[in-house]
Simulated assay, not measured.
Amino acid sequence: MTVTKGQSRAIGLLAGVALDAAFGDPRRGHPVAAFGRTAAYLERKVHADSRARGAAYTAVLVGGAGALGLAAERLAARSPWARAACTAAATWAVLGGTSLGREGRSMARHLECGDVEAGRARLAHLCARDPAGLGAPELARATVESVAENTSDAAIAPLFWGAVAGVPGLLAYRAINTLDAMVGYRSPRYANFGWASARLDDAANWLPARLTGVLTVACAPFAGGRPREAWRMLVRDGGAHPSPNAGRCEAPFAGALGVRLGGANAYHGQVERRPEMGDGRAPGVGDVRRAVRLSGAVTSAAAVVCAALAWWTRRTPPRREGAG
């Protein structure tokens, strides 16, 4: 049986998803953490209040990650099963869906037990929102919003770019997303230096966020919701968020869960008011586990869709005899 490049890629993506589901992120020696340390070291050396300097910083790190992925694919090129194994290892390294679910369930346990202080301490593992003074309802909303948005960032976007561009796509996307988390904030230090990282992250997530929205609509019954309502919120409220991508994930989650997301959020001492999405009630503690369940269903659906995309778009036609 001849295994094409696309089939190897599809097998590797599914195997990587299975590895992430079984083991989650490694506790030590995580390659993304190693990349983050490298990026932090380089930032200390080259930082300046300059968009050009920040763009060069981003290009070097993202280009380096993509080049590493290309080299890995070439080393495995002789065997379809080596290619699949290489893709599986890279997919496992960059996926964060299982860890996202664990953090969501951890927050749910704290809130179900009434331990708001523990919930506040845990919020930093999910988002950059200031936890001081947040009660259980605000923590529940923050968690649901973070799970919705990060379903795309942590799972669907890596799978999409893995299907389209293989191991280089997997590694380059994770580099882009990590840099956005590190320097993409609108703070005095990163307003110019982090501009390129933030804009590149917006571009890299544009299609995956919309795929996440559509799959959330399809998977709404896994959270006890209705696809029609999730679709209505996606169409009506998906563009209301100031981010070009986050609303495409959060709005259908709001519709699927029957809740209302958005409102006032505090980041680094400043309060930002986000448009509300959804017509339902405010999220409650019980909605956190429903959001995690919906996120898992969307990730599983995306794995199938992206594997199919890789399988059918990377078929190599048989070489004709005598072809030069």
Rank of each mutant, 00 (worst) to 15 (best):
T2Y: 00
L13V: 05
G16T: 14
A18G: 14
A21C: 10
A21H: 15
A22S: 04
D25T: 09
P31V: 08
A34I: 10
R37N: 12
A39K: 10
Y41G: 07
Y41I: 02
D49L: 10
A55N: 09
A67M: 03
G69Y: 11
A90N: 02
W92L: 07
T98G: 00
R102S: 00
E103Y: 00
G114C: 06
E117L: 06
A118D: 00
R120P: 04
L123H: 06
G133A: 08
P137F: 10
E138K: 13
L139I: 02
R141W: 01
N150A: 05
N150Q: 03
D153M: 12
A157Y: 08
W161S: 00
V164K: 02
L170H: 13
A175P: 06
T178R: 12
D180F: 11
S187F: 08
N192L: 15
A198P: 00
N205P: 02
W206H: 13
P208D: 06
C219A: 15
C219W: 08
P221N: 11
F222Y: 13
A230E: 10
A230T: 09
V235A: 15
H241N: 15
H241D: 14
C249D: 01
F253D: 03
G258H: 00
V259D: 06
G262N: 13
N265L: 02
Y267P: 13
P275G: 02
G280E: 05
G296A: 05
S300F: 09
S300K: 00
V304G: 06
R315K: 14
P317L: 12
